[in-house]
């Protein structure tokens, strides 16, 4: 039979008119002036609160994103102790040398690893598709992620500094210039990590494979970027590989904040390289943004 010419097919009967009450209701509904759509700023705050709430309920995320750098600092500081100086005469002990690397690691975990794994999961479990079916503006979703990353990384860094200062007697800087450096490295590093995390979230094929696809990248970067070892003692080729990626530059930028000026002698370049740090982080920010915008999907790959 033909499906495209219903009036002539015997299978077709006249349509049931809608119930009178229903039609009247629909008409009054349309006659009312439309209420204002909620603003993007308000929705971004609402999303941030919801994201923070659910993040801290997820045990995996809390352990492997939030608590990990604090635990690693505690372990390394305890193992290496505070007896030996990193460089004789510098007054810098191992806990102080490791602190900047752990701060940088925390920023990378809270931004890159957190978003790469959580967005891959949200794509897989239908969160993204559901949000796309509502009038929530995409900007509010991404601002909510940004807010959650800033809250997580901020609280995490504050805790890390508190543990370092109170438990391991690491001296914290007391001049505004160093905290100014801290601020721009933190913000630029978080932003670059976040956009790269959004872009990388499209790599895992499923939500379940997200952790095994994301965590090795993060671990290898930690080993080659001077988080667990003195960066200047790594083989030259490894230093060169690490210099392509942002974690090395974040760690170096944080060393310039938390180590005394005298410690610059353990930098392979012999300077803190603030210009290069800003340039590399900004480049990753741009690359991550472009790739993320081009590859972002609200649906699973196998979903049409």
């Amino acid at each position: 039979m033909s499906a495209t010419t219903p009036p002539t097919t015997p299978a077709t009967t006249p349509r049931t008119p809608p119930p009178a009450g229903a039609a009247a209701h629909a008409t009054t509904r349309r006659a009312a002036p439309p209420a204002r759509l909620p603003g993007t700023t308000r929705l971004a705050w609402s999303r941030t609160a919801f994201e923070v709430l659910t993040f801290f309920r997820e045990r995996d995320a809390v352990v492997f994103v939030f608590a990990y750098p604090i635990l690693m600092l505690a372990i390394f500081a305890t193992v290496f102790g505070t007896d030996d100086e990193v460089v004789a005469g510098s007054g810098v002990h191992f806990p102080q040398y490791f602190l900047p690397g752990m701060v940088a690691t925390g920023v990378m975990l809270s931004s890159f690893q957190n978003l790469a794994i959580s967005i891959a999961g949200e794509r897989d479990d239908g969160t993204l598709k559901r949000l796309r079916s509502t009038p929530l503006p995409p900007a509010a979703y991404f601002l909510g992620k940004t807010g959650q990353v800033l809250v997580t990384a901020g609280v995490q860094t504050a805790l890390l500094l508190a543990v370092a200062a109170l438990v391991f007697d690491v001296p914290l800087p007391d001049d505004a210039a160093r905290w100014g450096t801290f601020a721009w490295v933190f913000v630029l590093g978080t932003a670059a990590g976040a956009v790269c995390g959004v872009a990388y979230s499209s790599v895992p094929r499923t939500g379940r494979s997200a952790s095994p696809v994301v965590i090795p990248v993060v671990l290898v970067l930690q080993f080659v970027s001077g988080v667990f070892f003195r960066f200047d003692q790594l083989p030259t080729w490894m230093q060169q590989v690490a210099s392509v990626f942002p974690l090395k530059w974040m760690a170096q930028g944080m060393r310039s904040v938390f180590l005394p000026d005298a410690a610059v002698v353990v930098e392979p370049a012999g300077t803190w390289q603030h210009g290069a740090t800003a340039a590399v982080l900004a480049a990753w920010l741009v690359v991550g943004l472009v790739v993320g915008v081009r590859t972002f999907r609200w649906r699973r790959r196998d979903d049409g």
């Binding site: 209420a35 079916s133 509502t134």
Partner: peptide, 26 residues
């Protein structure tokens, strides 16, 4: 829109989710 096969937002409560999503609408 009620889609097929959702298992999202596992860590939030019924009340939190319904109130949150209601806030998206005028």
């Amino acid at each position: 829109v009620v889609l097929q096969d959702n298992h999202d937002m596992a860590e939030a409560t019924v009340r939190e989710i319904v109130h949150h999503v209601a806030g998206f609408y005028p």
